[in-house]
Amino acid sequence: MTEGILLASSDTVDMIKGLYKYEVFGQEVWITTSHVCILIVWLSLVIFSLIANYKLKHATEVPDTFQSILELIVSLLDGMVEGSMGKHAPVFANWICTIFCFILVSNLSGLVGLRPPTADYGTTLALALITFVCIHVVKIRHQSAKDIWIDKCSPLPPWLPIWMPINVISDIAVPISMSLRLFANVLSGTIIMGLVYGLLGKFALVWPAALHVYFDIFSGAIQTYVFCMLTMTYIAQSYGDS
């Protein structure tokens, strides 16, 4: 129980297991199975990207199957970013498409027997904190200090900042709620699948595939879409009206 949140406390449920321990400034730090799964996801994405890059450098006039799939992926993702960010889309299109691919492949990695890296709070909190930093960098760059102050005191007039603490708390709640949403959705799927396989034993033969379709593919895809949508909405909001 002393090894950290949800780390190796049960055999039935697929928990994060520590693989290698080292110390940083007297603090115990673990290399866990999440890191290994992230590495696998990262490697598969990098290999896919290298193949795609090679393929598109030798693109043909009449696209073959693989090239058509690549063009479809890129145009779908670009359309998604364009649809919700409007004229600010080119700045953030690369970043949003990157986290979309990463979260989607992470959620789907439960299908091949990995523990999804997004079922570790560290991963989702890191993603949500990047969104938080983006929101506030955009806000500081594109809005004047006066506008930010008025926005922070918003339901009341700007000379009466007693409502400001509530607004600051709701700003801080953004990364927490985003990361907990993704984490809890993926983790609940992982735990239910672990319970089905662990408790039913050899009765869980073919029919858990239907559960995998729901928990890994449907729920994973929806949560990926929602995470990217919320990131884009918050960033587009922080540009202000100008």
């Binding site: 129980m1 949140i5 949800l6 406390s9 049960s10 449920v13 928990m15 709620s177 907990l180 949403r181 984490f183 809890a184 959705n185 983790l187 609940s188 735990i191």
Partner: peptide
């Protein structure tokens, strides 16, 4: 859905982290 997931997180903390 977020509020329901907060309840789920509390339940998981109570069960596994204790």
């Amino acid at each position: 859905e977020t509020t329901g997931l907060y309840g789920l997180v509390i339940a998981l903390l109570l069960l596994f982290v204790q």
